[in-house]
């Protein structure tokens, strides 16, 4: 079973991404959107070995560079991901 975790809060002011990483399974992935995109600046993120996606427009709006360990997706890509993974866990 695989879960797509959707995180929309910055890890520098909020614990959601940290908590998500603690319980992420090896089949899981994280999609960063909104201020969650700032998670790309957190180096701890890619050392976990979890697949990381970021929503293209949030990346562009914040002028963040895309590290080689993350993948950019547009909205249709987001929809596709939520179908590919068994379930979506939005960290509201």
């Amino acid at each position: 079973m695989s879960t797509l975790h959707v995180v929309s809060h910055s890890p520098f002011t909020d614990s959601r991404l940290d908590s998500c990483l603690r319980i992420c399974g090896s089949q899981d992935a994280i999609l960063l959107c909104g201020d969650g995109a700032y998670g790309l600046q957190q180096s701890a993120l890619h050392t976990q070995g979890v697949k990381v996606f970021v929503l293209a427009e949030d990346l562009q709006a914040r002028n963040l560079s895309l590290p080689d360990w993350a993948e950019r997706v547009d909205y249709p890509g987001f929809v596709q991901l939520s179908i590919t993974y068994d379930k979506v866990n939005a960290w509201l």
Binding site: M1, T3, G25, K87, N89, L92
Partner: peptide
């Protein structure tokens, strides 16, 4: 989380 069909995090 794997055991359940759906997850809601609040």
């Amino acid at each position: 989380i794997d055991r359940y069909d759906q997850v809601i995090t609040l």
